[in-house]
Each structure stands twice: as structure tokens, then as C-alpha cells.
């Protein structure tokens, strides 16, 4: 399968390069040779029915799942491997952790550290891993909170926040690490319908500011507005790829058409 990078950001450096990524669970092929290249500043939205492998692919990027084959480069280097001779060698846990710290991830279930306050969630990485000065880390955390519309909630515990607020804290926590790439794994799927908008707005702002993002979602409207490129996955393969206008408004493949038709009523 070829890499059909549409030059929405001409000349920008590639941040993510995935080549022939394969993954099986118990003999079932979930990913069949996925290729994807994402350049600096680009927002790529991956659409597809449940079980199409899109979340698995996202989790392969920061090695929460280890692909069975293929190669994934973030910022030009393999996430969990070093090259020696003509083979890849698995990195130590410490080195893997360091490379992962450059990739932010936002989860469907938020996964905020529930025993820590919002401020502690936001400074755990910068202070504990990036060894940032404490005062600096706290100031930056407060700025990020303001950026996601939660100024002044530093002392709250996650359980005291609504789902939408928790997810925005989770976005701020990932941003606090100054990632070169942000992965969003169905960030609004666990939210009550009236809370989805606030999270999508935050993500749209980040996209406009030029953050490099890969978003797995079911929010077609978000994909249309914020994506530079839309990937439609089904059955572990990329079925269709292009601008939102091409894939969402004028899908060519019958599987894409069938999938989008189900959302048509809501548009």
C-alpha cells in the first residue's frame, strides 16, 4: 500500500512515519500493513467502524501495543528500538520511557491519576521525568489549565470534575510534556453528549495552533472542520485517505459510503 501524503503542509518535516505496521491478536489480523506519514503541524483524523483497528494502530505508535511487524518512526527515530547493523534492537525500559515522553496521549477514559490533584497530575511528568524546575513547572501547568479553560482548578481532585473537565485536564497533562506528537484515542467517546463540545473545542484550538495530532474519533463534524487529512480504516486496512472534502463529503469507496451514511442523519 502506498503512502498517499497530500501536501497540506508543503515542505514540513515528517513527525510520524509508519511503514507496513501489522498486528494480530490471537491469530486475528487487526492491522494489515498500515502506512501513515504525518508532517509537522498536521492534524490527521482516523475514522472507521468499531474493531477496524484504528485504536490499536494509535496504541502501536507509542508502543502501548507492540506491533508484530513494520516500523514506526517518531521524530525520525524508532520509538522502542535502536538501529544497529541492519536490525532493530529493543531499547531498555528507561530509554523507551524517554522516547515515549515525546509523544502525548489522551485516552478515552481520561486516566487522570485519581490520587493526585489536577496540579499534581500536570507536574508529575515535567518535574519527575523532564526534571523541570518545580516553580517553572507549576507556572506552566497553570497556564495550560487556563488554555484548556480550567483556570483556578489546580487543587481539585479528578473525581470532583465533570468528564469534559477531566478530559481537558488530561489534554493539558499531555501538553505539559511539550510533545512533538499528540495521540487522541476516542477522546469524547466516554463523555455525556453535552460535554463533547468543550473537549472538541479545545482540540480544535490546538489544531489551529499547529500541534501535530493524530485523532481517532467518531466525531465526523470535528473531522470535517479540524482535519487536514482524514483516513478511513476498516478491517485493519486504510480504505480511503484524503482531505475532509474528499473522504467525508465525496467518499469513493462503498465501505466509506456505508459508514458515513449511518452518520448522515446527524449532520
Amino acid at each position: 500500500m502506498s503512502v498517499n501524503t497530500i501536501p497540506t503542509h508543503p515542505g514540513a518535516a515528517p513527525v510520524l512515519q509508519a511503514h507496513s505496521v501489522c498486528k494480530s491478536f490471537g491469530g486475528i489480523e487487526v492491522l494489515k500493513c498500515i502506512d501513515l506519514e504525518v508532517v509537522q503541524g498536521e492534524t490527521v483524523v482516523i475514522l472507521g467502524p468499531s474493531g477496524s483497528g484504528k485504536s490499536t494502530f494509535l496504541r502501536c505508535i507509542n508502543l502501548l501495543e507492540r506491533p508484530d511487524g513494520g516500523r514506526i518512526l517518531v521524530g525520525g527515530s524508532d520509538v522502542g528500538f535502536r538501529v544497529s547493523g541492519d536490525r532493530l534492537h529493543e531499547l531498555s525500559g528507561k530509554e523507551l520511557a524517554r522516547r515515549r515522553s515525546r509523544i502525548g496521549m489522551v485516552f478515552q477514559q481520561f486516566n487522570l491519576f485519581s490520587h493526585r490533584t489536577v496540579m499534581e497530575n500536570l507536574t508529575e511528568g515535567p518535574i519527575g521525568i523532564l526534571r523541570m524546575n518545580k516553580k517553572e513547572a507549576r507556572e506552566r501547568a497553570s497556564k495550560l489549565l487556563a488554555q484548556v479553560g480550567l483556570a483556578g482548578r489546580e487543587k481539585a481532585y479528578p473525581r470532583q470534575l465533570s468528564g469534559g473537565q477531566q478530559q481537558r485536564v488530561a489534554i493539558a497533562r499531555a501538553l505539559a510534556m511539550r510533545p512533538m506528537l499528540m495521540l487522541f484515542d476516542e477522546p469524547t467517546s466516554a463523555l455525556d453528549p453535552e460535554l463533547v463540545g468543550e473537549v472538541l473545542n479545545t482540540m480544535r484550538d490546538l489544531s489551529n495552533e499547529g500541534l501535530t495530532m493524530v485523532v481517532v474519533t467518531h466525531e465526523i463534524a470535528f473531522a470535517r472542520e479540524a482535519a487536514d487529512r482524514v483516513i478511513f480504516m476498516d478491517g485493519g486496512v486504510v480504505v480511503e485517505e484524503g482531505t475532509p472534502a474528499q473522504v467525508i463529503d465525496n467518499p469513493q469507496n462503498p465501505r466509506t459510503q456505508a459508514f458515513l451514511a449511518r452518520f448522515a442523519d446527524h449532520q
Binding site: 524517554r98 522516547r99 515515549r100 502525548g104 496521549m105 485516552f107 511528568g125 521525568i129 488530561a170 510534556m177
Partner: peptide
């Protein structure tokens, strides 16, 4: 997973 994705070791 949240800890790992922040770059924490096991």
C-alpha cells in the same frame, strides 16, 4: 498506560 505514555519507567 497513562504513566507509561508520560514517559515513566515501569
Amino acid at each position: 498506560e497513562a504513566g507509561q505514555s508520560l514517559g515513566m519507567t515501569g
